[in-house]
Design a protein around this nucleic acid. Structure first.
Lengths: 146, 146
DNA sequence: TATTGTTATACTCTATAACTATA
DNA sequence: TATAGTTATAGAGTATAACAATA
């Protein structure tokens, strides 16, 4: 663990490339290891609905896809019984999409599968490495949220 | 920065989820910020060719796509002038794909674009946070390589 | 007979444009 | 007239199956 400063242009450049590559490789591995479950774009919608019901329009906006794409995605999820569609009593044009119990269970299973690989890797580390990751985890989360 | 142990099942579980999410979000942001450049699957092939020329067959195997897909991808790259195709003098069935100077330049530009976002985020950090990332970077790289 | 690369064809996810029904 | 959702259609990228050329 370096106790010296990481301050020169060259050092920051090397660090940014190393971190970027590590993040990309880890997320690729996680995705690969948890293949065969819910497709990423479907998972993303399910996770969004965990915060509460939403209209297809709102889902399309937040997921940055077109309305027809969201119609399709929601249709797939409904066919699998993971979400339910209801008419909005206040606005005849709108539809409300919400998670079913089955959808909540699928979300939980998928999350567990995605965490498993990372969990196993972390268990293989020594305590010092784990502490280094724990310290960086918060900083990475802050970067990702920017 | 925690100086205490990260050892309980619960702590390791929380750390693995936090790290996984941070890595996924960062790589999504990097991809988004460097959109409009070479498509990911094309970039991956170019990067592979940096190590030396290869046949479409070998590229398909290593990139885990079908032979027809690789025919298509290599065709696109050749149309853009980023790779060149030659007949193999030793085996009439084979074709050798290699990077052109233009392909090498495109690779360099794309890499720079992808690092830029991360580089800017790291510059905004304090020295202590940078040290935490530097310490974790090596551990993350080791995890990603497993 | 096996292998390399290509073509033909189809499936999935994405998009834009046009349509409907409500507001 | 504007908005929510759908349908029609097309464009990437992927796959499998069938083919030609070569080993």
């Amino acid at each position: 663990m370096p106790q010296t400063a990481v301050a020169t242009e060259r050092e920051v450049g090397a660090l940014s490339e190393d971190l970027r590559l590590a993040c990309m490789r880890i997320s690729r591995r996680v995705r690969f290891e948890s293949a065969g479950e819910i497709a990423p774009h479907q998972f993303s919608v399910l996770a969004r609905l965990e915060r509460g019901p939403a209209s297809p329009r709102a889902l399309a906006d937040v997921e940055k896809v077109s309305a027809p794409s969201m119609t399709r995605t929601v249709g797939c999820l409904a066919d699998q019984g993971l979400v339910a569609r209801h008419d909005d009593p206040d606005d005849g044009r709108r539809i409300i999409v919400e998670l079913t119990d089955e959808g909540r269970a699928a979300l939980r299973r998928t999350r567990q599968g995605r965490n498993r690989w990372m969990h196993e890797r972390i268990l293989e580390l020594g305590e010092q490495d784990r502490r280094a990751l724990a310290a960086a985890s918060e900083v990475l989360a802050r970067i990702a949220a920017r």
